[in-house]
Amino acid sequence: MGNNLLDKAKELKNLGARYITTVAYLNPDTGDKIVVKHIFDLKGKLEELIYEAEFSGALESIKEVYPAVEWSEREVMELYGIEFSGYPEEEKNLLLSSGGHPFPLLEVEKQKLLKKKHG
């Protein structure tokens, strides 16, 4: 998988950082990768763990260190199509298990970038 998200999460945990949320979006400058940011509160200041993933790429889950990340990671998987390690197939959905367009936010952001490029 080639990233050390878990180690960095452990370092933050040891410093006393509290997990807040995970944000993902298609890189608006290049349009070729998905930016994933885990956001933490460290004594009132925000800290971010930032990674970029290829389309359908995989990232290491930090659920082992911060259990509350589970729903956020599952949400990123279903909205953007990237994978976090350690989730069985039936847990890859969270909000859209009843159906709908796959990876809706990835699609809308792709369209925005195309529109910007070609007018």
Partner: peptide
Amino acid sequence: GLIYYCITDGTDIPYRVKIRAPSFVNIY
């Protein structure tokens, strides 16, 4: 604690708005 993470691209429509409501972590 509620958090809004907004990314704008210079147009009048936000590029991405992420909402983390407090119940998201409390219910978990």
